[in-house]
Design a protein around this nucleic acid. Structure first.
Lengths: 177, 177
DNA sequence: GAGATTATGTCAGTACTATTGACGTAATTT
DNA sequence: AAATTACGTCAATAGTACTGACATAATCTC
Protein backbone atom coordinates (compact mmCIF):
# COMPACT_ATOMS: atom_id res chain seq x y z
CA UNK A 1 0.00 0.00 0.00
CA UNK A 2 1.94 2.92 -1.22
CA UNK A 3 -1.17 4.87 -1.91
CA UNK A 4 -3.58 5.67 0.85
CA UNK A 5 -7.18 5.46 -0.22
CA UNK A 6 -7.25 4.97 -3.94
CA UNK A 7 -5.86 1.51 -4.33
CA UNK A 8 -8.55 -0.29 -2.44
CA UNK A 9 -9.99 -1.79 -5.57
CA UNK A 10 -6.82 -2.10 -7.61
CA UNK A 11 -5.96 -5.40 -9.19
CA UNK A 12 -3.03 -7.31 -7.79
CA UNK A 13 -1.18 -8.81 -10.70
CA UNK A 14 1.24 -11.07 -8.89
CA UNK A 15 0.36 -14.62 -7.96
CA UNK A 16 0.15 -15.60 -4.37
CA UNK A 17 3.08 -17.84 -3.57
CA UNK A 18 4.59 -19.78 -0.74
CA UNK A 19 6.15 -16.52 0.32
CA UNK A 20 3.91 -16.17 3.31
CA UNK A 21 4.84 -19.61 4.45
CA UNK A 22 1.58 -20.97 3.21
CA UNK A 23 1.46 -24.39 1.68
CA UNK A 24 -0.60 -23.67 -1.39
CA UNK A 25 0.70 -26.70 -3.21
CA UNK A 26 -0.81 -29.21 -0.82
CA UNK A 27 -3.93 -27.11 -0.22
CA UNK A 28 -4.64 -27.16 -3.93
CA UNK A 29 -3.69 -30.78 -4.45
CA UNK A 30 -5.99 -31.79 -1.65
CA UNK A 31 -8.86 -30.04 -3.34
CA UNK A 32 -8.27 -31.66 -6.72
CA UNK A 33 -7.55 -35.06 -5.24
CA UNK A 34 -10.65 -35.15 -3.12
CA UNK A 35 -12.85 -33.91 -5.91
CA UNK A 36 -11.73 -36.61 -8.28
CA UNK A 37 -11.75 -39.21 -5.54
CA UNK A 38 -15.44 -38.58 -4.88
CA UNK A 39 -16.35 -38.33 -8.55
CA UNK A 40 -15.94 -42.08 -9.06
CA UNK A 41 -18.77 -43.22 -6.79
CA UNK A 42 -20.87 -40.23 -7.81
CA UNK A 43 -21.35 -41.81 -11.22
CA UNK A 44 -22.69 -45.02 -9.75
CA UNK A 45 -24.83 -43.25 -7.18
CA UNK A 46 -26.58 -41.31 -9.92
CA UNK A 47 -27.98 -44.58 -11.29
CA UNK A 48 -29.72 -45.17 -7.99
CA UNK A 49 -30.91 -41.62 -7.54
CA UNK A 50 -28.59 -41.33 -4.60
CA UNK A 51 -26.03 -38.72 -3.68
CA UNK A 52 -22.88 -38.53 -1.63
CA UNK A 53 -24.77 -38.45 1.62
CA UNK A 54 -26.18 -41.90 0.85
CA UNK A 55 -22.69 -43.14 0.18
CA UNK A 56 -21.41 -41.95 3.51
CA UNK A 57 -24.26 -43.52 5.43
CA UNK A 58 -23.91 -46.77 3.53
CA UNK A 59 -20.18 -46.76 4.11
CA UNK A 60 -20.39 -46.41 7.87
CA UNK A 61 -23.28 -48.81 8.25
CA UNK A 62 -21.15 -51.38 6.48
CA UNK A 63 -18.04 -50.53 8.40
CA UNK A 64 -19.77 -50.61 11.78
CA UNK A 65 -22.86 -52.79 11.47
CA UNK A 66 -25.21 -52.33 14.37
CA UNK A 67 -24.25 -48.76 15.07
CA UNK A 68 -27.11 -46.65 16.35
CA UNK A 69 -28.59 -43.55 14.77
CA UNK A 70 -26.95 -41.38 17.42
CA UNK A 71 -23.55 -42.95 16.75
CA UNK A 72 -23.94 -42.41 13.06
CA UNK A 73 -24.83 -38.77 13.59
CA UNK A 74 -21.76 -38.38 15.72
CA UNK A 75 -19.48 -39.90 13.12
CA UNK A 76 -20.91 -37.92 10.24
CA UNK A 77 -21.28 -34.72 12.23
CA UNK A 78 -24.61 -33.85 10.71
CA UNK A 79 -28.03 -33.25 12.23
CA UNK A 80 -30.69 -35.89 12.51
CA UNK A 81 -32.87 -33.91 10.12
CA UNK A 82 -30.18 -34.16 7.48
CA UNK A 83 -29.74 -37.85 8.09
CA UNK A 84 -33.46 -38.57 8.09
CA UNK A 85 -34.14 -38.21 4.39
CA UNK A 86 -31.10 -40.13 3.32
CA UNK A 87 -31.50 -42.95 5.81
CA UNK A 88 -35.17 -43.31 5.00
CA UNK A 89 -34.37 -43.73 1.34
CA UNK A 90 -31.75 -46.35 2.07
CA UNK A 91 -34.21 -48.24 4.25
CA UNK A 92 -37.04 -47.94 1.73
CA UNK A 93 -34.80 -49.34 -0.99
CA UNK A 94 -33.67 -52.25 1.21
CA UNK A 95 -30.07 -51.23 1.48
CA UNK A 96 -30.21 -50.76 5.22
CA UNK A 97 -32.38 -52.28 7.93
CA UNK A 98 -33.11 -51.06 11.42
CA UNK A 99 -33.33 -53.38 14.40
CA UNK A 100 -34.54 -52.41 17.80
CA UNK A 101 -31.63 -52.13 20.21
CA UNK A 102 -31.44 -55.18 22.48
CA UNK A 103 -30.40 -53.35 25.62
CA UNK A 104 -32.25 -50.13 24.98
CA UNK A 105 -35.35 -50.52 22.88
CA UNK A 106 -35.38 -46.86 21.97
CA UNK A 107 -32.28 -47.33 19.92
CA UNK A 108 -32.26 -48.41 16.31
CA UNK A 109 -29.30 -50.48 15.29
CA UNK A 110 -28.43 -50.07 11.64
CA UNK A 111 -27.32 -52.98 9.49
CA UNK A 112 -26.65 -53.33 5.81
CA UNK A 113 -28.60 -55.89 3.80
CA UNK A 114 -26.89 -58.03 1.17
CA UNK A 115 -27.99 -55.38 -1.32
CA UNK A 116 -26.51 -52.60 0.81
CA UNK A 117 -23.29 -54.50 1.25
CA UNK A 118 -23.00 -55.02 -2.47
CA UNK A 119 -23.58 -51.36 -3.21
CA UNK A 120 -21.07 -50.26 -0.60
CA UNK A 121 -18.48 -52.49 -2.21
CA UNK A 122 -19.32 -51.27 -5.68
CA UNK A 123 -18.89 -47.68 -4.56
CA UNK A 124 -15.64 -48.34 -2.78
CA UNK A 125 -14.11 -50.31 -5.62
CA UNK A 126 -13.17 -47.44 -7.95
CA UNK A 127 -11.93 -45.40 -5.01
CA UNK A 128 -9.75 -48.23 -3.87
CA UNK A 129 -8.50 -48.72 -7.40
CA UNK A 130 -7.56 -45.07 -7.53
CA UNK A 131 -5.67 -45.34 -4.27
CA UNK A 132 -3.88 -48.46 -5.42
CA UNK A 133 -2.86 -46.74 -8.62
CA UNK A 134 -1.61 -43.73 -6.71
CA UNK A 135 0.51 -45.98 -4.54
CA UNK A 136 1.51 -48.43 -7.19
CA UNK A 137 5.22 -47.86 -7.07
CA UNK A 138 5.17 -47.48 -3.33
CA UNK A 139 5.96 -49.95 -0.63
CA UNK A 140 4.35 -50.50 2.71
CA UNK A 141 6.38 -47.70 4.24
CA UNK A 142 4.97 -45.11 1.86
CA UNK A 143 1.49 -46.39 2.40
CA UNK A 144 1.85 -46.05 6.12
CA UNK A 145 3.18 -42.57 5.68
CA UNK A 146 0.17 -41.49 3.66
CA UNK A 147 -2.13 -43.03 6.25
CA UNK A 148 -0.33 -41.22 9.02
CA UNK A 149 -0.51 -37.95 7.16
CA UNK A 150 -4.23 -38.24 6.56
CA UNK A 151 -4.85 -39.27 10.13
CA UNK A 152 -2.84 -36.32 11.37
CA UNK A 153 -5.03 -34.02 9.26
CA UNK A 154 -8.08 -35.11 11.23
CA UNK A 155 -9.09 -33.15 14.31
CA UNK A 156 -7.43 -34.84 17.30
CA UNK A 157 -10.71 -35.28 19.20
CA UNK A 158 -12.05 -37.36 16.36
CA UNK A 159 -9.15 -39.68 15.86
CA UNK A 160 -10.56 -42.06 18.43
CA UNK A 161 -13.51 -42.70 16.11
CA UNK A 162 -11.24 -43.80 13.37
CA UNK A 163 -9.50 -47.02 13.30
CA UNK A 164 -7.19 -47.61 10.54
CA UNK A 165 -6.56 -51.18 11.50
CA UNK A 166 -9.58 -53.38 11.39
CA UNK A 167 -12.81 -51.41 11.24
CA UNK A 168 -14.07 -52.93 14.44
CA UNK A 169 -15.43 -50.38 16.83
CA UNK A 170 -17.03 -52.77 19.27
CA UNK A 171 -14.83 -51.73 22.12
CA UNK A 172 -11.83 -53.78 21.30
CA UNK A 173 -8.32 -52.99 22.25
CA UNK A 174 -6.74 -52.92 18.90
CA UNK A 175 -3.65 -50.94 19.63
CA UNK A 176 -2.02 -50.21 16.36
CA UNK A 177 -0.73 -46.88 17.60
CA UNK B 1 -32.66 -66.96 8.84
CA UNK B 2 -30.94 -69.53 6.75
CA UNK B 3 -33.76 -69.33 4.32
CA UNK B 4 -32.76 -68.53 0.81
CA UNK B 5 -35.52 -66.54 -0.79
CA UNK B 6 -36.49 -64.60 2.30
CA UNK B 7 -33.14 -63.23 3.36
CA UNK B 8 -33.06 -60.42 0.87
CA UNK B 9 -33.68 -57.89 3.61
CA UNK B 10 -31.76 -59.62 6.36
CA UNK B 11 -29.20 -57.68 8.35
CA UNK B 12 -25.56 -58.45 7.78
CA UNK B 13 -23.86 -58.35 11.14
CA UNK B 14 -20.25 -58.55 10.11
CA UNK B 15 -18.25 -55.47 9.33
CA UNK B 16 -16.93 -54.92 5.86
CA UNK B 17 -13.18 -55.37 5.92
CA UNK B 18 -10.21 -55.24 3.64
CA UNK B 19 -11.14 -58.78 2.66
CA UNK B 20 -12.27 -57.78 -0.76
CA UNK B 21 -9.01 -56.01 -1.36
CA UNK B 22 -10.63 -52.66 -0.76
CA UNK B 23 -8.70 -49.98 1.00
CA UNK B 24 -11.29 -48.81 3.46
CA UNK B 25 -8.71 -47.34 5.77
CA UNK B 26 -7.54 -44.69 3.34
CA UNK B 27 -11.03 -44.16 1.91
CA UNK B 28 -12.29 -43.30 5.35
CA UNK B 29 -9.27 -41.27 6.37
CA UNK B 30 -9.58 -39.21 3.25
CA UNK B 31 -13.16 -38.36 4.12
CA UNK B 32 -12.37 -37.31 7.67
CA UNK B 33 -9.22 -35.47 6.68
CA UNK B 34 -10.88 -33.45 3.97
CA UNK B 35 -13.86 -32.62 6.09
CA UNK B 36 -11.75 -31.23 8.87
CA UNK B 37 -9.41 -29.54 6.43
CA UNK B 38 -12.28 -27.56 4.94
CA UNK B 39 -13.89 -26.81 8.27
CA UNK B 40 -11.18 -24.31 9.19
CA UNK B 41 -11.88 -21.76 6.47
CA UNK B 42 -15.61 -22.41 6.73
CA UNK B 43 -15.63 -20.66 10.09
CA UNK B 44 -14.07 -17.54 8.65
CA UNK B 45 -16.20 -17.58 5.53
CA UNK B 46 -19.36 -17.58 7.62
CA UNK B 47 -18.41 -14.12 8.96
CA UNK B 48 -18.52 -12.80 5.43
CA UNK B 49 -21.66 -14.60 4.40
CA UNK B 50 -19.57 -16.63 2.01
CA UNK B 51 -19.36 -20.34 1.44
CA UNK B 52 -16.84 -22.78 0.11
CA UNK B 53 -17.50 -21.82 -3.46
CA UNK B 54 -16.30 -18.31 -2.70
CA UNK B 55 -13.16 -19.72 -1.16
CA UNK B 56 -12.35 -21.75 -4.23
CA UNK B 57 -12.84 -18.83 -6.58
CA UNK B 58 -10.79 -16.57 -4.36
CA UNK B 59 -8.07 -19.15 -4.13
CA UNK B 60 -7.63 -19.59 -7.85
CA UNK B 61 -7.93 -15.90 -8.63
CA UNK B 62 -5.07 -15.34 -6.21
CA UNK B 63 -3.06 -18.25 -7.49
CA UNK B 64 -3.48 -17.29 -11.16
CA UNK B 65 -4.22 -13.59 -11.31
CA UNK B 66 -5.53 -12.58 -14.70
CA UNK B 67 -7.16 -15.87 -15.48
CA UNK B 68 -10.31 -15.54 -17.52
CA UNK B 69 -13.80 -16.65 -16.60
CA UNK B 70 -13.55 -19.57 -19.00
CA UNK B 71 -10.26 -20.70 -17.48
CA UNK B 72 -11.71 -20.50 -14.01
CA UNK B 73 -14.70 -22.58 -15.06
CA UNK B 74 -12.35 -25.13 -16.50
CA UNK B 75 -10.30 -25.39 -13.34
CA UNK B 76 -13.27 -25.59 -11.02
CA UNK B 77 -15.28 -27.83 -13.33
CA UNK B 78 -18.53 -26.06 -12.63
CA UNK B 79 -21.00 -24.31 -14.90
CA UNK B 80 -20.96 -20.59 -15.51
CA UNK B 81 -24.36 -20.30 -13.85
CA UNK B 82 -22.89 -21.72 -10.67
CA UNK B 83 -19.93 -19.41 -10.86
CA UNK B 84 -22.04 -16.33 -11.62
CA UNK B 85 -23.59 -15.78 -8.23
CA UNK B 86 -20.39 -16.43 -6.33
CA UNK B 87 -18.20 -14.32 -8.57
CA UNK B 88 -20.68 -11.47 -8.55
CA UNK B 89 -20.65 -11.40 -4.77
CA UNK B 90 -16.87 -11.36 -4.68
CA UNK B 91 -16.81 -8.51 -7.15
CA UNK B 92 -19.54 -6.57 -5.35
CA UNK B 93 -17.62 -6.86 -2.08
CA UNK B 94 -14.38 -5.71 -3.70
CA UNK B 95 -12.49 -8.93 -3.29
CA UNK B 96 -12.09 -9.49 -7.00
CA UNK B 97 -11.97 -7.14 -9.99
CA UNK B 98 -12.54 -7.82 -13.64
CA UNK B 99 -10.45 -6.26 -16.36
CA UNK B 100 -11.22 -6.41 -20.01
CA UNK B 101 -8.88 -8.79 -21.77
CA UNK B 102 -6.15 -6.91 -23.64
CA UNK B 103 -5.97 -9.19 -26.64
CA UNK B 104 -9.60 -10.21 -26.70
CA UNK B 105 -11.97 -7.64 -25.28
CA UNK B 106 -14.69 -10.21 -24.77
CA UNK B 107 -12.65 -11.82 -22.06
CA UNK B 108 -12.70 -10.74 -18.43
CA UNK B 109 -9.44 -11.19 -16.62
CA UNK B 110 -9.92 -11.75 -12.92
CA UNK B 111 -7.63 -10.23 -10.33
CA UNK B 112 -7.72 -10.11 -6.56
CA UNK B 113 -7.77 -6.76 -4.80
CA UNK B 114 -5.72 -6.16 -1.67
CA UNK B 115 -8.82 -7.11 0.26
CA UNK B 116 -9.25 -10.29 -1.74
CA UNK B 117 -5.61 -11.18 -1.30
CA UNK B 118 -5.86 -10.68 2.43
CA UNK B 119 -8.93 -12.88 2.69
CA UNK B 120 -7.35 -15.60 0.58
CA UNK B 121 -4.37 -15.62 2.92
CA UNK B 122 -6.55 -15.63 6.01
CA UNK B 123 -8.45 -18.62 4.67
CA UNK B 124 -5.34 -20.52 3.71
CA UNK B 125 -3.54 -19.90 6.99
CA UNK B 126 -5.35 -22.41 9.18
CA UNK B 127 -5.23 -24.99 6.42
CA UNK B 128 -1.53 -24.52 6.03
CA UNK B 129 -1.10 -24.73 9.78
CA UNK B 130 -2.94 -28.01 9.79
CA UNK B 131 -0.73 -29.38 7.05
CA UNK B 132 2.41 -28.22 8.83
CA UNK B 133 1.24 -29.90 12.01
CA UNK B 134 0.49 -33.10 10.15
CA UNK B 135 3.98 -33.08 8.69
CA UNK B 136 5.76 -31.73 11.71
CA UNK B 137 8.02 -34.67 12.33
CA UNK B 138 8.53 -35.26 8.67
CA UNK B 139 11.35 -34.25 6.42
CA UNK B 140 11.33 -33.04 2.87
CA UNK B 141 11.19 -36.58 1.57
CA UNK B 142 7.93 -37.32 3.35
CA UNK B 143 6.47 -34.06 2.20
CA UNK B 144 7.29 -34.86 -1.38
CA UNK B 145 5.75 -38.27 -0.95
CA UNK B 146 2.49 -36.82 0.25
CA UNK B 147 2.47 -34.37 -2.63
CA UNK B 148 3.10 -37.17 -5.08
CA UNK B 149 0.36 -39.25 -3.60
CA UNK B 150 -2.18 -36.44 -3.80
CA UNK B 151 -1.16 -35.59 -7.32
CA UNK B 152 -1.50 -39.23 -8.33
CA UNK B 153 -5.02 -39.21 -6.95
CA UNK B 154 -6.01 -36.51 -9.43
CA UNK B 155 -7.37 -37.50 -12.82
CA UNK B 156 -4.43 -37.66 -15.23
CA UNK B 157 -6.01 -35.27 -17.74
CA UNK B 158 -6.13 -32.58 -15.10
CA UNK B 159 -2.63 -32.84 -13.77
CA UNK B 160 -1.44 -30.38 -16.34
CA UNK B 161 -3.54 -27.69 -14.67
CA UNK B 162 -1.79 -28.22 -11.42
CA UNK B 163 1.63 -27.00 -10.68
CA UNK B 164 3.04 -28.12 -7.46
CA UNK B 165 6.26 -26.28 -7.93
CA UNK B 166 5.96 -22.55 -8.16
CA UNK B 167 2.36 -21.56 -8.62
CA UNK B 168 3.17 -19.54 -11.67
CA UNK B 169 0.66 -19.98 -14.40
CA UNK B 170 1.29 -16.61 -15.93
CA UNK B 171 2.67 -17.94 -19.16
CA UNK B 172 -0.40 -18.36 -21.29
CA UNK B 173 1.45 -21.00 -23.18
CA UNK B 174 -1.52 -23.23 -22.70
CA UNK B 175 -3.09 -24.64 -25.75
CA UNK B 176 -6.66 -23.56 -25.87
CA UNK B 177 -8.95 -26.50 -25.48
C1' DG C 1 -44.89 -44.27 40.44
C1' DA C 2 -44.26 -39.52 38.72
C1' DG C 3 -41.31 -36.74 36.34
C1' DA C 4 -37.16 -35.90 33.77
C1' DT C 5 -34.25 -37.32 30.29
C1' DT C 6 -32.91 -39.81 26.18
C1' DA C 7 -33.35 -41.79 21.36
C1' DT C 8 -35.59 -41.29 17.53
C1' DG C 9 -38.79 -39.41 14.08
C1' DT C 10 -41.01 -35.71 11.66
C1' DC C 11 -42.76 -31.09 10.00
C1' DA C 12 -41.60 -26.50 8.37
C1' DG C 13 -38.65 -23.12 6.72
C1' DT C 14 -34.16 -21.61 4.99
C1' DA C 15 -29.33 -21.48 2.83
C1' DC C 16 -25.73 -22.84 -0.28
C1' DT C 17 -24.00 -25.06 -4.17
C1' DA C 18 -24.78 -27.24 -8.01
C1' DT C 19 -27.38 -28.54 -12.36
C1' DT C 20 -29.85 -27.88 -17.35
C1' DG C 21 -31.89 -24.99 -20.72
C1' DA C 22 -32.70 -20.73 -22.97
C1' DC C 23 -31.70 -16.24 -24.46
C1' DG C 24 -29.00 -11.82 -25.16
C1' DT C 25 -24.98 -8.95 -26.31
C1' DA C 26 -20.64 -7.70 -27.73
C1' DA C 27 -16.34 -9.01 -29.93
C1' DT C 28 -13.78 -11.88 -32.89
C1' DT C 29 -13.20 -15.07 -36.62
C1' DT C 30 -14.30 -16.97 -41.07
C1' DA D 1 -22.17 -10.80 -43.65
C1' DA D 2 -22.49 -14.81 -40.99
C1' DA D 3 -20.87 -17.84 -37.59
C1' DT D 4 -18.63 -18.49 -33.45
C1' DT D 5 -16.91 -17.28 -28.98
C1' DA D 6 -16.91 -15.13 -24.23
C1' DC D 7 -19.63 -13.70 -21.01
C1' DG D 8 -23.90 -12.54 -18.50
C1' DT D 9 -28.49 -13.57 -16.95
C1' DC D 10 -33.22 -15.54 -16.16
C1' DA D 11 -35.79 -19.53 -14.66
C1' DA D 12 -36.46 -23.96 -12.78
C1' DT D 13 -34.72 -27.92 -10.21
C1' DA D 14 -31.85 -31.01 -7.11
C1' DG D 15 -29.01 -32.36 -3.18
C1' DT D 16 -27.24 -31.47 1.18
C1' DA D 17 -27.05 -29.04 4.89
C1' DC D 18 -29.03 -25.99 8.77
C1' DT D 19 -32.31 -24.24 12.93
C1' DG D 20 -36.39 -24.68 15.53
C1' DA D 21 -40.35 -27.02 17.12
C1' DC D 22 -43.00 -30.84 18.45
C1' DA D 23 -44.27 -35.99 19.20
C1' DT D 24 -43.60 -40.63 21.03
C1' DA D 25 -41.81 -44.25 23.40
C1' DA D 26 -38.42 -46.06 26.54
C1' DT D 27 -35.39 -45.52 30.25
C1' DC D 28 -33.59 -43.38 34.32
C1' DT D 29 -34.01 -40.92 38.73
C1' DC D 30 -35.93 -39.56 42.92
Amino acid sequence: MTDKSSDAGKPIRTAITSEDGIDFAIIELFFFAYRDFTSDPDQILADYGFGRAHHRVLHFVNRRPGLTVAELLDVLKITKQSLARVLKQLIDTDHVVQLQGPRDRRQRELYPTAKGRALALALARPQSRRIRAALEDSGAAERTLVERFLEAMVNPELRAQIDVGSAKMSGKSHGEH
